[in-house]
Design a protein around this nucleic acid. Structure first.
Lengths: 194, 194, 194, 194
DNA sequence: GATGAATGAGGCTTCATTCAT
DNA sequence: AATGAATGAAGCCTCATTCAT
């Protein structure tokens, strides 16, 4: 009877939000700009999100979720730490090359002191790191004194940092090819004993 | 005499700004709160800064400057890459323990896609990395294929990332003692060949 | 058949509107809440009313109409002023005990400077007062200098005021029993000479 | 040094608020209309009031306060219930003739189910009624079974109701002269026992 | 020089109303 | 006939900035 919800609109809102948050940060991204960029009425947003915070939170949550899901699958299918690090890095580089703003978005919000990651997601990340640690120690790939934090820093934070440095052209090297993957993996490999 | 009072005011404004930006982010920090925290009239601020952006920019610039100066001195006095990495890490941890907000401030703004570091500062950082690279290769401490970027990432970005992960209690480990320094240096050491 | 369903819908809309206006005031009552409370589509409302104002206006009109009709019947069946006052008060108390929201609704809107009572209804009320006055003077129950206004104030406005003061617990007395009816009537009786 | 607060602006805001609330009710009165009527910037309001509710609340509070103060003085200076009622009525009529909107304002908000009078003020009103009751019973002017509520209704609510009926031209009698005072007092007198 | 009163553009949000289905 | 998705004007409010004093 009534119009059907136009899913492309919601998709456009998400894209526009991602874009604006990356361009101007959470505070600088305005609802009116997001709406106009998405080609949607300002008020329309509020039919799907409680407000700006909800919108951005939701977007962070789902992006992170997708990433975590990929990581979990990755852990299910690969068993050596080296393999895992490599696949993880390739995954992140893959996103960066196809949807650089998605990586920027995660990067910007993960470094914002006002945006806490959902507790459940923090726990899932922690669990992933524990799995890597346990399997790595069992197989003898990594030393016994390596902890989750280092795995996270080297496996996730470092590649993201690396990618964004490139996207920002900080060292005037904007490519993100096989050579860059190698560079990132080099650090990961160092972590692995012997 | 009048000058002295002024300098105190400017100093208080800088402290207040640092504090508010860290607590509430750039967008959330309001001029009126900053002024009242600094015990200064709102209008006074505009006699010294063109506006809020200018104020924060200036603060980022001077904080970064101080840090870069310290790094330059460090390079003048220490010659092995290992030493440099260690002193650098100790410097950053020292700041984190005494003025955690300064580290948070740098962390937050360096990751913001709005706040580009001054070109001159970027160059100075680049030069510092080049010096480390050159001396490291000359002394045989690091491999020939290491580049500035990696030195920056491992020597600066990684420790800052590490510190902030702790300040955020992401892995429920908030201490920043000798043990944590060791952990950070371990990665640095891995970079150094054989 | 379809008609029957319609009537229920309209009825439900009226109930929902009454409820929401009483709970949140005219401005605070939203069409979407009213529609959802009535189990009706928002758009449906606009097939029967020009808008929110029209809806509420109509509701005020019909409620007032019902009350005026009751008063007219009352006047047809009772002849002494005293009797009329008593029956009138009992009628109002009756409504207040069974449908307190109806009394609140009338109370709220009759005192709102935006909602003018329809001219035709004002005239009917005036006529009712005139009838009471004329019959009262004829029978000698009330003084010749009593006018319509006083009859309205004492017979209608005063009881409604009294009831709402109780519904608001202004004097911490929320009951509306025989004792309260007596109290109200006492004032009415005073109006009646000798 | 800086500009001095322009008290006339605050005064104009108060007047404009009173006016708009009377004309359109609390919900219908908009900040932007109030500000423009007062000839003041919209944001200026928020330097003195937390928001719209605070502004209107404050205005209701102070208006009511002034009235209650007058009533308290009145009670201090006049001792028979009759005198008190008369002076009270004259006071209210006086306001109505000079500042009709003040009376309308009180009338509108006292009948709004969303605006509760401050508890302290409710208590002061209650105390005033108690004083009248006690003194009236002591002097034998009023019956022992009269309670505070009736005193309030007859002494305050009834005159206000009466005045507003006139201001609304409900019975096409807009004058508020000596004759109308007499009419109101007649009801009051009835309350007083032989 | 310094103050803080005042401004007003622009932010977020609500909601009566329209209209494609 | 009925729905409810979509709109956008308008509401409340914040706050960087200006400027009279």
């Amino acid at each position: 009877m009534a119009r059907v919800i136009d899913e492309t609109k919601i998709e456009r809102i998400k894209e526009a939000t991602l874009h604006m948050v990356v361009q101007k940060g959470y505070g600088g991204a305005s609802i009116s700009e997001i709406a106009s960029l998405a080609g949607v009425a300002e008020g329309y947003l509020y039919r799907h999100y409680k407000g700006k915070a909800d919108l951005v939170h939701d977007l962070l949550y789902s992006n992170l979720n997708e990433l975590i899901n990929q990581l979990e699958q990755l852990l299910d299918n690969h068993h050596t730490v080296l393999e895992i690090f490599e696949q993880l890095t390739r995954t992140l580089f893959g996103i960066a090359n196809v949807q650089p703003e998605r990586i920027k978005f995660l990067y910007v919000l993960m470094h914002d002191y006002n945006f806490k990651i959902e507790e459940s997601q923090r726990e899932r990340i922690l669990n992933l790191c524990t799995r890597v640690k346990v399997e790595g120690i069992k197989s003898g790939e990594i030393a016994a004194d390596i902890d989750e934090e280092e795995i996270y820093l080297i496996g996730v934070a470092y590649p993201i940092q690396f990618i964004n440095l490139h996207l920002k052209n900080f060292f005037n090297q904007s490519e993100l090819g096989e050579g860059e993957i190698k560079k990132v993996l080099k650090i990961g490999k160092e972590l692995i004993k012997k």
